[in-house]
Design a protein around this nucleic acid. Structure first.
Lengths: 191, 191
DNA sequence: CTTAAGTTGAACATTGGTGTTCGACTTAAG
DNA sequence: CTTAAGTCGAACACCAATGTTCAACTTAAG
């Protein structure tokens, strides 16, 4: 898609990608990262950074968009509509906990720095997949119905985040994260 | 305790208290709050603020100390050593979720702004109460032993935090928080 | 009532981040 | 090889936050 408008040089394309990569890491593991730091991490001059992303705000939005898109892809690949809701949730956790956590952190940051914009709407598209899955589970009778749906979604995201933090802090092996998550989440969500 | 050293005027005492109160609120619900904002919130001039707390760092430490002490008190009142571990955990949740969450937020902030100092040690004193409780539960056979202890503690704090956020966002009534927490945590922790 | 302790706003220096402009240099693309 | 697109460092203006100093004012305490 889109080498249409003002076809960029391969050069520029490469830098933009490097910047988005660096910015994703920077924003997720050190939210207050400066533009200088991001430029350095991307191996790019400050001016180049501003050439492509005229402001911190624009950059954050770009990273967010990209991550939302990626999250959408990953979720789709986990086929949340197939099989029992529990199985689908297990698949989703295995394939997506990391991406979903990135998405969470970026959204927190965006909400703080940009104010709750229409980002909330784009955010919805991702959260709704989880919510839809849980609702289906309730209809199937395998997910508890005695707590607000909103809280169940929060619980999922919250533990996802906790696991990611533990992995990041070296207190949990990345390969074990999905197992631990599953072992904790399922008893909390099952009816 | 301690009107010994350089006995302060009632005046000053009152302001210090007001500052600590305002700073606690500011730091927990808007971590990047400026000194100006805190001074205004405390109803005090900027100079007065600096007179009592020579730097943002010192102020943060003072607030942290105070909250750790308060958390210690509240935990002690919940008598974590009495009755079955499950009952003790329930008592702890009912009386302390809010204070424990304040403690968590401040610790996160301190870790970011001050670097992991010997604060980690003081932090331990609070976390250890929860860990001790869970360990006792394991010995009694009522808390699961198939996951790292560290993760169980993280789970407690994580959901505590999630509930506090939901309350703060108006999506969960404060009076319901303990019930919801209990209903989610116990199935996740029980063996 | 006296006075020492405490408060205050205004003004200042400093720092660190943001965003811009410029002119020289490098590189992809035809 | 030519040239337009892209990069780069240096220098700039700007802003917001931190922390300090001062001189006038207010207030608690004896």
């Amino acid at each position: 898609m889109a080498t249409t408008e003002t076809r960029r040089r391969a050069d520029a394309e490469r830098n933009i990608a490097a910047i988005l990569d660096a910015a994703l890491v920077a924003f997720t593991e050190e939210p207050q990262s400066s533009m200088v730091a991001i430029a350095r991490a991307a191996g790019v001059g400050r001016v180049t950074l501003y050439a492509h992303f005229p402001s911190r705000e624009v950059l954050l939005e770009a990273v967010l968009d990209r991550t939302i898109a990626e999250a959408g892809e990953v979720i789709k690949k986990a086929e949340p509509e197939e099989g029992s809701a529990i199985e689908a949730l297990q698949r989703l956790l295995r394939t997506s906990w990391h991406v979903l956590d990135q998405h969470r952190k970026l959204f927190d940051l965006a909400q703080r720095e940009l104010g709750s914009v229409q980002l909330r709407q784009r955010h919805r598209q991702v959260v709704d997949h989880v919510e839809g899955l849980l609702t289906r589970g309730q209809e199937e009778g395998v997910i508890r119905s005695d707590l607000p749906m909103n809280w169940l979604v929060t619980t999922v995201y919250s533990l996802l985040h906790a696991a990611a933090e533990d992995v990041n802090a070296g207190q949990l092996k990345a390969e074990d994260a999905a197992d631990v998550l599953e072992a904790t989440l399922l008893p909390a969500l099952k009816s």
